[in-house]
């Protein structure tokens, strides 16, 4: 079960090597995203779209809001 994190915990996780992933569509990511986030849209998330992610490191996912 993924752990919910508050905004203030993100820098600490990134300092520990976490990977930040925006799962919104490409256009929304390209318009504006969190620093150093990569884009893997939810609609395409699968074994073939995550080779650049390291399974040994934490991953933080985010979208637009909590809804």
């Amino acid at each position: 079960m993924a752990v919910a994190v508050h905004r203030e915990e993100i820098p600490r996780l990134l300092a520990r090597g976490a990977q930040l992933v925006e799962v919104l569509p490409v256009a929304e990511y390209e318009e504006e995203h969190l620093p150093d986030a990569i884009n893997v849209p939810l609609a395409t998330l699968g074994p073939e779209t995550i080779p650049e992610l390291d399974r040994s490191r934490p991953v933080i996912v985010y979208c637009w809001d909590a809804l």
Binding site: I10, L34, R57, P58, V59, I60, A66
Partner: peptide, 12 residues
């Protein structure tokens, strides 16, 4: 180790 920033980009 998966973390969910549930509040998302709007919160940031």
């Amino acid at each position: 180790a998966v973390y969910d920033y549930t509040a998302g980009k709007i919160d940031w």
